[in-house]
């Protein structure tokens, strides 16, 4: 009997933090991975829906590997995912990553400048690296 081979998908769960500039970075970096860098290998899990009881989202995060992307060290996305579905494969904290690479966080949470694109690219590349790691293992 032939076994059906299902393509492995990785769920990206950004915190979307509204209060902080790094929250905007989580959104733009995640969308860059979803739309441009790994469109066939990734899906997004909408954190507010996930938390509000979205069955599909919770099931997905239980059965597929996830990467959480948090703006700050409160790690809301990581903690919520652990509570509701299980441990994410990898957790990224934008403020830590920017510090590590001496990149200044954006000044505005509303609109990102051309300069802020470096931060988006850095976080998107880190997510992509982790996606590839997961896919290689599977």
């Amino acid at each position: 009997m032939l076994e059906e081979i299902k393509p492995k998908k990785v769920g990206i769960i950004p915190c979307n933090g509204e209060e902080i500039c790094e929250g905007s970075i989580t959104r733009f970096a995640s969308r860059k991975v979803l739309d441009k860098l790994r469109p066939n290998d990734t899906v997004t899990v909408c954190l507010p829906l996930f938390i509000a009881g979205g069955k599909e989202e919770r099931e997905f995060a239980k059965n597929y590997p996830t990467i959480t992307v948090d703006g700050c060290d409160k790690r809301c996305s990581q903690i919520s995912t652990e509570k509701l579905s299980g441990r994410p494969y990898h957790s990224i904290v934008v403020s830590d990553l920017l510090k590590e690479h001496s990149i200044e966080p954006p000044k505005s949470r509303r609109a990102l400048t051309d300069k802020d694109q470096a931060a988006v690219d850095l976080v998107a590349d880190e997510i992509t690296k982790k996606v590839d790691e997961i896919l290689e293992k599977s």
């Binding site: 979307n16 933090g17 509204e18 902080i20 938390i51 409160k74 809301c76 903690i79 919520s80 509570k83």
Partner: peptide, 10 residues
């Protein structure tokens, strides 16, 4: 004022 919605979850 606004706040991070996800912080309510934690």
């Amino acid at each position: 004022k606004t706040a991070c919605l996800a912080r309510l979850m934690i």
